[in-house]
Write a protein that binds this DNA or RNA. Structure first.
Lengths: 346, 346
DNA sequence: ATCATAATGAGGCACGTGCCTCAAAACAAG
DNA sequence: CTTGTTTTGAGGCACGTGCCTCATTATGAT
C-alpha cells in the first residue's frame, strides 16, 4: 500500500512542492497565464520534467466542465459511402459519449465553395471545437479554413485532401490506393493481354488524379501487357455515363479489366451489368458499400479497395480532440490503411 | 447560457431530485449496495431512464483514484509477429496513459499448461484488473481462466482462441482468413492447374484447423483445378521443415501455389528461397513482419493475410477496460479485420 | 402499542484541476 | 528610503462521484 502510493502520478501539489512555489504559481505556468518571472517558469518546468508530471485531463475537464463538440461537414449526396460515414458517426458518438464528445453532421454543397466558406465562417468556437471537412480544394475553402483556425476552431481535412495541410488530414494515400488497385487487377488478370477501362466521376479532384497516377505507374511497370485507356468521366450523370461506357466498350474489344475509381461505384457497375459484358473481365472498385458488398458476394465484382469508414470517423474525432487538448496525436493508430476486400473478408 | 444549462448531462443530484430520494440512496442504487427497498430501487431506475442519466466515469474514477493495470500473457518466443505485438503494447501504453491505463507483458511457456495455470492463479485483483491471454487451449488453462474471472480479474483470449469464450475474444475469424488466402491464391494463379502446398507449424491448434478448413472450402468450390496437398507440419523445427518441404517439392512437380499458414513465415520462406523454386509459383503467408514486409517488396512473396497488431492490442485494452467499467464494449470498432497486404499497401 | 430492525436522509470529505480574490512579499525606479 | 508595480502565496469554491458516519424515519413483528 505504501509502495503503491509512491508510484502514484504526481499532482500539481507535488509540483508546487518540488519547485518551491505555490499551487497558484504552478497553475499560472501550466495554463500559460502571464505575470510569472521567467526564472520561476523555468523552475516549474524543471520540476515538471523531473517528476514526469502530466496533467490529469479528466480532472481538468471536470473542473472546466469541458465538453467537445465537433462538426462533420459532408457533401450533400445520396452516395452510399457517405451514408456509411454518417452511420459510423452515429456509432462513434455513442462510443465517445463517455468522453463528453458530441458530433453534428452538416451537409454542404461541394460545388459551391462560396457557401462552404460562409458556413465555415458561421461556426463559433463557443459552440464548435472542431470541424472535419470533406470538400474539394478551392481557394475560398482554403481561406475559410485558415480563418477558422485563427478563431480557435480545429479544422481537419477529411477523406478529401487539401494541399495546404498535407501532413494533417484523415484519409488514405490515394496514390498507393491506385497502385494497389492496379496490382490486384493485374494479378487477377494474369498473363492475358488487353486494355483496361478506368471510370471516374471527375478527374478534377486531387484524389482522382493521385489514384490514376498510382494506377498507371503500377500497370506500366509491372503489367506492360496491359493498356490503360483514358479515364472516362461520368460527372455523376447517369445518361452520360451510359453513353461513354457503351462507346468505350464498342471500340475496345480486347477489354480485360475495369477500374472504377469513383467512390460511388454503384452507377457505373449497374450500367456495366446492364451491358452484359464478359464475366471474365476483372472488375475492381472503391469503397465498401451496400452495393459493392453485394456485388462481391455475387461474384460480379472481383475486389474492392476501401478505407474503413468507422476508422476514418474515429480517427478524425480523436485528432480533433487531440487538437483541443493541445496534444500531439500521431501514432500508428491514426494511419488509415488501404483495405483490399474480397468476398471472403468483407 | 441558461439554455446550455438545460442540455447539460444530468448528475446524481438531478437523479436524486427526480426520484424524490437523497443522493445517498441514489449512490446505494447506482453502486448496488443493499439495504434499499425494491420499490425505491425502481423509482431510481425509472428516473435514470427518464433523465437518460449516465454516470460520469471520469469523475467516478477520480473519486476512486481508479487506475487500470492489464497484463498481456504472451508466449516466450523469437517470433517476429510477437515482437510486433510487444511494440504495439508499448505504443498503446502511451496512447492510453491519459486514461490511467498501464500494461505489463509477461511471457508464458505455451507448451506448459501447468505453469500457465500457476501464473494466472498468482494474479491478484488488487494488482491486476485484467489479462489478455495468448495460449493454446487446454483444460488447465481453461480452469485457471475461470478461477481468474471468479476472483474478479477480467480475462480475454488474445489472438489464440479458446472455445469456452467463443464470443468474447480478440482476433480474426480464422476460417475466413483461410478462405481469403485461398481466394487470393486461386485468383493469382489464374486458370493454371496444379497442386498447392500448405505449410503449418502444427495442426494441433484450433487456429490452424480453422484456417485449413476455410482454405480447403474455398479452393474446392471456386478453384477445382487446384489440388491442395496435406499440411506440412514443421513443429518449429528448421531441419525437419527443410526435409519435408524438399520432399514435397520433389514429389509434386506441378506445384503452382504455396500457402504458409503459420504466423512465423520467415523460416519456411527462407527454406523455399534456398531451394530456388520457380518464381512464378504464387506464395501467400500470414502476418506482417519485418521479414514478410521485405519479401513482399522484393517480389518473393505475393500476398500476406494479416491482422493489425496495433488494433489487436488496442482492442484488447479497450475491452478489458470495458469489463472493469462494467460496460458493454461491442461495436464495429472491436471487429478485427482480415487484411490483405500486397507490396503496394503495406 | 412497543420495540427491534430496516431503510433513508443529511452532511461532509476526498479525488486533481481550474479559476478566482485578496493579501503579502519582492522588485524596480525615483 | 519611499513609492509604485510586479510577482507570489494562501485560501477557497467548483466540477461529479464515491464513500463514510450518524441521526432520523418507516416498517413489520409481537
Amino acid at each position: 500500500m505504501a509502495l503503491q502510493k509512491i508510484t502514484l502520478k504526481p499532482t500539481t501539489k507535488d509540483l508546487a512542492k518540488a519547485a518551491g512555489v505555490s499551487r497558484a504559481t504552478v497553475d499560472r505556468v501550466l495554463n500559460g497565464r502571464d505575470g510569472v518571472r521567467q526564472k520561476t517558469v523555468d523552475r516549474v518546468q524543471e520540476a515538471i520534467k523531473k517528476l514526469g508530471f502530466v496533467r490529469n485531463l479528466q480532472a481538468a475537464n471536470l473542473a472546466k466542465s469541458q465538453s467537445y463538440h465537433f462538426v462533420f461537414a459532408l457533401p450533400r449526396s445520396g452516395d452510399q459511402f457517405l451514408e456509411r460515414i454518417v452511420q459510423h458517426i452515429d456509432e462513434a458518438m455513442e462510443i465517445f459519449s463517455t468522453d463528453h464528445i458530441s458530433c453534428d453532421v452538416r451537409h454542404i454543397d461541394e460545388n459551391d465553395p462560396h457557401s462552404i466558406s460562409d458556413f465555415l465562417d458561421s461556426l463559433s468556437p463557443h459552440e464548435v471545437n472542431g470541424v472535419a471537412i470533406m470538400s474539394p480544394e478551392t481557394p475560398q475553402v482554403r481561406d475559410a479554413i485558415s480563418r477558422l483556425q485563427d478563431r480557435g476552431v480545429a479544422a481537419l481535412p477529411f477523406v478529401s485532401n487539401q494541399t495546404m495541410m498535407d501532413s494533417d488530414w484523415v484519409g488514405i494515400n490515394n496514390r498507393a490506393a491506385g497502385a494497389t488497385a492496379a496490382l490486384l487487377l493485374g494479378q487477377f488478370i494474369g498473363r492475358q493481354e488487353g486494355s483496361v477501362m478506368v471510370i471516374a466521376e471527375s478527374m478534377q479532384s486531387r484524389d482522382s488524379l493521385e489514384r490514376r497516377l498510382g494506377f498507371d505507374e503500377e500497370i506500366n511497370t509491372a503489367f506492360k501487357q496491359l493498356r490503360v485507356l483514358p479515364s472516362l468521366e461520368t460527372y455523376g450523370n447517369d445518361a452520360r455515363a451510359g453513353e461513354i461506357i457503351t462507346a468505350s466498350l464498342a471500340s475496345n474489344s480486347d477489354l480485360v479489366g475495369i477500374y472504377v475509381m469513383a467512390s460511388e461505384a454503384r452507377k457505373p457497375l449497374t450500367i456495366l451489368q446492364g451491358l452484359n459484358i464478359n464475366p471474365s473481365i476483372i472488375k475492381i472498385a472503391h469503397e465498401l458499400t451496400t452495393y459493392t458488398e453485394q456485388a462481391l458476394r455475387a461474384h460480379t465484382l472481383d475486389g474492392v479497395i476501401a478505407q474503413d469508414a468507422g476508422h476514418l470517423v474515429r480517427s478524425a474525432i480523436r485528432r480533433l480532440k487531440g487538437n483541443v487538448d493541445q496534444r500531439r496525436t500521431i501514432g500508428s493508430q491514426e494511419n488509415i490503411r488501404i483495405y483490399i476486400l474480397l468476398r471472403t473478408n468483407i
